[in-house]
């Protein structure tokens, strides 16, 4: 067996764990952000979806101030969940269809870091607008300023968890004929429940005079856990879907 020591092919030994993590992360983050900017219309549609869902609730009940103040934080959270869910199928779908995902899985760069980069771009383009728009939509629900701050802080910590957990489901349902959407919802929404409870609970805790520290700590713990686990679970799921 001839070993291939010709200088034409630089000997690429397998990387140590940890090599190329930053290269991989920023490669995926920059690329996905650039792609998102080139198709801004789609982003706008998702943000509009969030705004419309929030506006539907008063129409389905009553524009009563007391009622809306009570329901507002929960409604904004549910709308954030749905907006995240709606945008998830697109996280991997186009890369899967055009073969980029294959090349990512075959790249010498670490796949979990590439995926974390993609998830970060997804959050910046779908989660962050939800946080930023929250004060504006809170006005429709007569929310008090201190409540708005708590709501925003909760969304800021909570929406990345949604993107991270959702990525696992998006990767598992890649390329399935029963149109990923509804199946994805069934897989992922139950996992979103703790985020919803702690996030919306923060507002109630503040209103009840308890302070939201405990809720924020739990949300942050969830974020750390999701950051540590989701990129690896998603990589496993991507490889399974490509197999």
């Amino acid at each position: 067996m001839t070993t291939n020591s010709s200088p034409v092919f630089p000997v690429r030994t397998a990387m140590e764990p940890g090599d190329g993590v930053f290269t991989a992360f920023f490669w995926a983050l920059r690329r996905d952000l650039r792609l998102a900017l080139r198709s801004r219309a789609e982003l706008g549609v998702q943000i509009l979806f969030y705004i419309i869902v929030v506006a539907l609730f008063p129409l389905s009940m009553s524009p009563d101030k007391e009622l809306l103040m009570l329901l507002g934080p929960g409604v904004l959270w549910v709308a954030a969940l749905l907006a995240s869910l709606l945008s998830l199928p697109r996280l991997f779908a186009s890369d899967y269809a055009d073969g980029t995902l294959e090349q990512m899985a075959l790249s010498p760069l670490p796949l979990p870091a590439l995926i974390l980069g993609k998830i970060s771009a997804h959050w910046l383009t779908t989660g962050l607008p939800v946080v930023v728009l929250a004060p504006l939509l809170s006005i429709q629900y007569w929310l008090e300023p201190e409540v708005i701050w708590v709501l925003m802080a909760g969304l800021l910590i909570g929406t990345p968890v949604l993107s991270l957990l959702g990525a696992i489901g998006a990767a598992l349902t890649l390329g399935l004929r029963s149109g990923g959407g509804s199946l994805l919802a069934l897989l992922i929404l139950p996992l979103y429940i703790p985020v919803l409870i702690f996030g919306a609970g923060a507002v109630e805790a503040v209103r009840g005079g308890m302070g939201a520290d405990a809720n924020f700590s739990l949300l942050a713990a969830g974020l750390l856990l999701a950051l540590a686990g989701a990129p690896f679970a998603t990589s496993a799921a991507v490889r399974i879907s490509l197999d």
Binding site: L35, R38, D98
Partner: peptide, 8 residues
């Protein structure tokens, strides 16, 4: 699949 992005 050639792994190309239409937008780029």
């Amino acid at each position: 699949a050639p792994a190309l992005k239409d937008e780029l």
